[in-house]
């Protein structure tokens, strides 16, 4: 038997499924989320990330150090396709406040400074952000939180666990019969009730990046939240969703985001890295890559 708990977090939904000890597991999940929120939430004025000064090296806590390490690794392994210094560009596109409060306005693209300019010494727990760099950890921090929580619950509570944060899924420990079943759709909130397909995962992570959610208008032009660091603009919509399975949720999320930015080059890029993926084109055609199961697929609406 599995126990499932669901609650809102970071403008999206957290889902916790465990094979046992649901109360202890939820307490641990909330503790991990609080830690990551206090360190990495750019919408919180009192978060450690928001209070980072520019132009001088400053000490940082272990959670922010880990989040920055993970974000810079994602940038390095994607040749900058997933870049934490897109904060200014995202704000310039209008995503400068909690999503529900965004209003239309002029579109003034901003160049992405580049992840190489963030100087992190994780061993000493210090970071130096040059002037003019705004870090956005949104692409990796949520997935990192899912990985951390799943790992902690599995080890400390001693049960099988699935943690999903807005559709970024991490699993650890024993699995229920048939694996942890994840419904895939355009919207993680409606995917269970109206799945385009259902897959079973037993280890690691799975994540979906989408150009159909968190969209808004700027200068009357539709925008979405995945910025192409090469242009500073919202990535061209070749894929409406990219779902990737990987050894961790962070790597799944990193690859899914890179796939959206890569557009037509994504299938080859994913296959070269042995990453199973499900890509849905803007027109709704489904493309399975790298061993993703194609049976019983149906076309996305």
């Amino acid at each position: 038997m599995t126990h499932v708990v669901e609650f809102p977090v970071w403008g999206t939904t957290a889902v916790l499924a465990v094979t046992d000890h649901p109360v202890e597991a939820e307490r641990l999940l909330r503790a991990v989320l609080d830690d990551v929120d206090q360190a990495c939430n750019r919408f919180r004025a009192d978060s450690e990330l928001s209070r980072l000064p520019s132009g001088r090296a400053v000490p940082i806590g272990p959670v922010l150090a880990e989040a920055l390490t993970v974000a810079l690794r994602a940038a390095r392994l994607t040749d900058g396709l997933v870049d934490p210094t897109v904060g200014g560009a995202i704000r310039a596109l209008g995503y400068d406040r909690d999503f529900a409060a965004i209003v239309d306005g002029p579109l003034v693209p901003q160049r992405v400074p580049g992840w190489h300019r963030v100087l992190l010494d994780a061993d000493r727990g210090e970071v130096l952000l040059p002037h003019g760099i705004e870090v956005d950890l949104g692409a990796t921090a949520k997935a990192l939180a899912a990985d951390r929580a799943a790992r902690a619950i599995s080890v400390m509570v001693g049960c099988g666990v699935l943690v999903s944060l807005g559709g970024d899924v991490a699993v650890a420990g024993e699995t229920p019969a048939g694996g942890w079943r994840v419904a895939i759709g355009d919207d993680h909130r409606t995917a269970v009730a109206d799945p385009q397909t259902v897959v079973a995962v037993r280890r690691g992570g799975l994540a979906t990046s989408s150009t159909t959610r968190r969209t808004w208008l700027r200068d009357g032009v539709p925008q979405h939240h995945i910025v192409d660091p090469r242009t500073g603009l919202a990535a061209d919509v070749v894929w409406r969703t990219a779902t990737v399975a990987a050894g961790t949720c962070v790597d799944a999320n990193t690859a899914a985001t890179a796939a959206i930015v890569l557009g037509h080059d994504a299938p080859e890029w994913l296959a070269a890295r042995g990453l199973p993926a499900r890509l849905v084109s803007a027109a709704g055609a489904v493309l399975a890559v790298g061993g993703w199961p194609a049976d019983r697929e149906r076309q996305a609406a």
Binding site: L144, R181, T190, V198, A246, T248, D251
Partner: peptide
């Protein structure tokens, strides 16, 4: 320890086709 190596980590095995009701959903958020 979270550096995770020099490549994105592929899963031990690809997801399998699932059957029955899902534990959660993945999609745009």
């Amino acid at each position: 320890s979270t550096d995770g190596g020099d490549s994105l980590q592929a899963p031990d095995s690809a997801p399998e086709q699932g059957s029955g009701s899902a534990h959660t959903g993945s999609g745009g958020s």
